[in-house]
Each structure stands twice: as C-alpha cells, then as structure tokens.
Amino acid sequence: MKILVPVKRVIDYNVRIRVKPDHSGVETANVKMSMNPFDEIAVEEAVRLKEKGKATEVVAVSIGPAQAQDTLRTAMAIGADRALQILADGDIEPLAVAKILKAVAGREAPQMVILGKQAIDDDSAQTGQMLAALLGWPQATFASTVEITEDRVLVTREVDGGHQTLELTLPAVVTTDLRLNEPRYASLPNIMKAKKKPLESLPVAEFGVDTSPRLTLVKVEEPSVRQAGKRVQSVAELVDKLRNEAKVI
C-alpha cells in the first residue's frame, strides 16, 4: 500500500508572529520556517504504518517555493521514502492545493492520503475535505487513531461528545489531530539518508490547475491587547458587571 503525505512549509510554531506594517499579511522575511506540526504527525503516522508492515511506500509532497525542499527533506528524515516538490510561488488556496493533490493522486495512485487537519498559518482546515470530495473517496478528519485492516481503515475521531470511530474503504483521505502520535526525533543516520532519497521537482504548470486566488485578503491585524483584569468585591458586583458591562449574561 502506498501512502501519500502532503506537507506544508509554514512559520515555525515557536515564532512570535508579526503583522506587516501595511496590514497585507504577516512578516515571513527572516522568520524561521518549519513543517506544519499537523503534517509532521501525518508523516509520523504514515512511517509507523510502514514500519508495522501495513504500508509499502510513503511519498511526501509539498506545494510551494523552492525552499519547501527543506520541509520535504525533514519528511524523509522521519522516514518518507521519496518526495515530490511542486514549485509554486505566491498564495495557493486550499481549493487549488486540493486540485493539485488530486492530480498527484492520479499519478501516484496511493491507497491513502494522510495530511494535517489544518495548517497553522492560515488555519483553513479545508484541504483534506476538498481533496476527498474531488477524488470521490471517503474521508475521516481529525484522526486520533488510525488502524488498517485488509482493505479498510478504522479511524477514531475526537468529537465534542467523545470518540467516534469510522470505518472507511480504501482508498481514503485521513486528516490528523494533535493526539494521533508524537513525532520522533530524526536520527542522524536518517538525516544523512534523507539527503540521498529521491526528490522530484515539477513546476505547478504541469498540473493544469488554475491556482489564482478566489479570495481577496482585505486586511490582517494583530489581535487586540488583552485588558488588565479587575478585582470585584462581591458576587452581586460580578453578576452586575457580566450583565451590564460585558453583556454576556
């Protein structure tokens, strides 16, 4: 079974995000970039499935600038067998990503696509769902466990009421939640091996997908600064303030 793992290069989760002075987006120059943490969990899960003998090949794919190569090398250091880089500049919205991935799925014929439930930069949480729809495959989102039997996959999802378990026929699309696994530290030999694993680069034009944005970004602003708290003298005062000042009850 072949698993396809789409990964996205995003601003590192440790970086304090700064909004550009002209409010056209967030500052990315001179900022540390890493693999989207949810995607890292997806790579880890795919590699674990391979280690358990459930999968035979793990292919990582990334759509983005040339530097996304680093992200793909990271995926291969964790254990992906090879990588596919689709070179595209500018903002690629989830629908375009899903369409490109559909074309990639057509080329690679994977039995499963595992990807992060969302990317931490735009928090869209749409790609997996759109991809499943475009492919006409079943989908299980926000997975907290993934188990493969013969031609099916059992996915436990964390939902509001507790855990929901879905059984899907393969091929299928699975998106990962935080608690699915804890990604490993890449070992030194694997970091070295990753440099020699095959990485194919293709221009986005080859996929014949219209990547022009469907949305117009109006303005990006910093969240407003939290106001200092106030100490209240009595429950009555608290209720009064909640009702009349905060207007929440």
Binding site: D70, R73, A77, Y185, L188, I191, M192
Partner: peptide, 17 residues
Amino acid sequence: DFGPDVISSVLEEAARL
C-alpha cells in the same frame, strides 16, 4: 556528503533534542 546544508539540518535536529 557534508556540505553546509547538511551541517545545518543536523544542527537543527540536535537543537530539538
């Protein structure tokens, strides 16, 4: 095998550890 890019990625993982 040990160009600056390899050294960088090794140090990055070392840093995480």
